[in-house]
């Protein structure tokens, strides 16, 4: 098993955190993981992306040339990554912010209006975690329990209430797609 996922959006949408969380959860499931955030000049202009590879074998390259999954949070991300996804791959798109749709017919598309869903949560935050919930529901790359554990390890130590709200966001996204 070797699964490559790219997360992309603009700075502030929490795409690096999504990648970090997924890789951490993969690590807890004792898989090999790499997580490569975009850096330097690539980040200028406000877009950020992050590539996560999860595998039962040694990972040769943390760069995902043809990811199985793409999680796209804004319009520029869709244009940049829609043609890179493997045939038969899956795109999760933030339908609150992305108007257009991929023209390829060989992909599975899930639309998650994460910004609208976030309004249901206190503080109108956590759209990235909502997306992550939807993502793990459909891909099964890591379990809901492991991801909850990852949230707890990363946020819980600092502030239990942040963990709680993120867990609610994860659940919301997880339940949104069936």
């Amino acid at each position: 098993m070797l699964i490559k996922t790219v997360f992309s959006g603009f700075g502030g949408q929490g795409v690096i955190m999504m990648g970090y969380l997924l890789a951490t959860a993969g690590m807890y499931e004792e898989k090999n993981v790499t997580c490569l955030p975009s850096y330097g000049a690539e980040v200028r202009g406000g877009t950020a992306n992050c590539t996560v590879v999860i595998s039962t074998e040694e990972i040769a390259s943390p760069v995902a040339s043809e990811p199985e999954f793409a999680v796209l949070m804004n319009n520029p991300s869709l244009f940049r990554f829609q043609n890179q996804v493997q045939s038969g791959g899956t795109i999760f798109l933030n339908s609150s912010m992305i108007e257009s749709r991929p023209i390829r017919g060989d992909l599975e598309i899930y639309e998650v209006p994460v910004n609208d869903l976030a309004k249901k949560l206190s503080g109108n935050k956590g759209s990235n975690i909502i997306m992550l919930g939807a993502f793990i529901k459909k891909t099964g790359v890591v379990s809901f329990e492991t991801m909850t554990h990852a949230l707890k390890e990363i946020f819980g130590a600092k502030n239990p209430s942040i963990f709680k709200s993120n867990k609610a966001a994860l659940q919301l996204g997880y339940d949104y797609l069936d």
């Binding site: 690590m27 993981v33 790499t34 997580c35 490569l36 955030p37 943390p62 760069v63």
Partner: peptide, 10 residues
């Protein structure tokens, strides 16, 4: 190299 510096691994 840049990749090793930037990438995250367990």
């Amino acid at each position: 190299d840049g990749m090793l510096g930037q990438m995250m691994e367990p």
